[in-house]
Design a protein around this nucleic acid. Sequence first.
DNA 1: CTTGGGTTGGACAGCGCTGTCAAGTAGTCA
DNA 2: TGACTACTTGACAGCGCTGTCCAACCCAAG
Lengths: 356, 356
Amino acid sequence: MAKYPPRRTDSAGRGTELSVKVTIHDVARESGVSIKTVSRVLNREPNVKADTRDRVQAAVAALNYRPNISARSLAGSKAYLIGVFFDNPSPGYVTDVQLGAIARCRQEGYHLIVEPIDSTADIHEQVEPMLATLRMDGVILTPPLSDHPVVLSALEQAGVAYVRVAPGGDIDRAPWVSMDDRLAAYEMTRHLIGLGHRDIGFIIGHPDHGASRLRHEGFRDAMRDSGLAVREGRVEQGMFSFRSGFEAAERLLGGADRPTAIFASNDDMALGVMAVANRLRLDVPAQLSVAGFDDTPGAKITWPQLTTVRQPIAAMAGAAADMLMRGVEREDGAPPPSQVLDFELVVRESTGPAPR
Amino acid sequence: MAKYPPRRTDSAGRGTELSVKVTIHDVARESGVSIKTVSRVLNREPNVKADTRDRVQAAVAALNYRPNISARSLAGSKAYLIGVFFDNPSPGYVTDVQLGAIARCRQEGYHLIVEPIDSTADIHEQVEPMLATLRMDGVILTPPLSDHPVVLSALEQAGVAYVRVAPGGDIDRAPWVSMDDRLAAYEMTRHLIGLGHRDIGFIIGHPDHGASRLRHEGFRDAMRDSGLAVREGRVEQGMFSFRSGFEAAERLLGGADRPTAIFASNDDMALGVMAVANRLRLDVPAQLSVAGFDDTPGAKITWPQLTTVRQPIAAMAGAAADMLMRGVEREDGAPPPSQVLDFELVVRESTGPAPR
DNA sequence: CTTGGGTTGGACAGCGCTGTCAAGTAGTCA
DNA sequence: TGACTACTTGACAGCGCTGTCCAACCCAAG
């Protein structure tokens, strides 16, 4: 394999000899049992005497043995590999997903394969070769792929289990992990109302993301429940990008008659709003409160820092990985139960009492 | 493997039958040769008659055959897996690396394994089990891991090839891909000088990142070459974070005597400078020019948009992947030659002519 | 002391592919 | 024409592990 650097052999390797591969046979010999028994211990199978189990484990530790994934995957039914599909990601989101998933995977000896998917190109051409060459125990789908019908069916056709992170609809199709976007938007809106705001602007997210609709609903429900009207022209369509937020804010804040607060469906758009406010020399939050959603790194890379909603992204990814790893082991073939995790309202300096 | 959803079998799979795995034996039978010959064609080995090669390729296409990575890895010398190690990443950087590496890997049938490494924890405990369970053909190291001596030696000890992205020093130890940080900082400084700035502030990056030193050098060299002095108190130490940039800027801009331009060693810190400028009601760029480095997404998520240096991150990662894939194939064991890729000065609105 | 069921361990056959080595098939030169 | 050197191809043995199946063993009940 690695032909360079050649240090490995010439420089006397201190400590454990990683170069000489230790196999299940070595462990079997060392502990005086058959390789099958070692395999049983490794896989936590029942019907191994406690005494035998201990001897094997001692040998594993002594030899610093690690089972080889390729061999396990080839011979057995688990691949010890979990895929993460993403597309056109907010980089922070993707990284959080990876971190969350890996934290869970590592302790179980699983690894993560990342696969960016271009959802504007041919999905089958991307997904099928990948699935055919590399066996994965399951795939974690992040938005907007969670709601991409072709991706879902490509996976189903290939017989690969998947868990959707924050899907926007078609909830019964497959297991998912999510947070309550509607409720979060509801609570954020209530937070603004609680500060005395009555005239609140809203910027809708990208129409392809299921969460956009839910956040919008949460906003409207909170307004209605507080007996407040959403005024004409106070809701703008955005695309989750800084620019779209900037432009929406220009419309929202252009005239003399402007809202006292703007709630953007994500942080990037909220930062667009802040930029416009800055440009118009509007003091945030004294003259205008701005709220975002997602708690991206950008939320703190601004002044004042953004009030936003922290999604449990890493936790959702961890839960998804968990479901997948557990899924491989279940006998009945029943899908694991889906989960809703808690969000957190992060109140920082960009929101304050309504003026006047 | 995947036990759910059970659709796979009951719903008549339209199109290709992915469920029935086609193996090298099927291809061999179909094309009337031995499996070994099929293997030869697959691996582009020489000494196969053109006619035979064609027949095999036709069969591969007809059966939609894809070789199984686990089996290849187990039997042969390639693993078809490349690792990416990262730590405490700017998410954008990590994502760019992944995208760049994967683009190159896909066409060669390789996959990417991502492994976050906590460089403050025990390195060996993280690296060794991972390398022992999963064979990788090589690892791509991103900063600050590119300069982490324990990681490097753990990899060497395990006999796994690696390529360092943008290493800060110890250049002869192993192959690397980089851009000329010194030159980029030099040119950015010249850009500011060209706009008439004479009194320029500089914020140094995190001391653990090798690039910090190089960028600082580039700044000083450009000033010196232009016959300009770096005034006392005009250079502040930062940590690559927004906050550290913010604090450095407070010191730099606090008094009446302030520089007309500030060059921060990365975008996050530059955004910190912008925030302070905003707060002090300094007009950027009319009263203060601000330059960053990296061209992170944040550079555009601000107003005015940041003048910065675009690193060829994806290209560097792609080149690194390439070196690794090629490295597996070389006979002589010589390391592939390291590469320096071109950066790009991105001039946006945050820099302008010096006041007065 | 035998019978029967449950427990524990091992032999063995692959999983799908590549490396080795040898055999077969031209093509070449004396 | 025979011997020799490419060039092509295939048989076969694993890679390191798990799944299947069976043997050996244990204990309590008959």
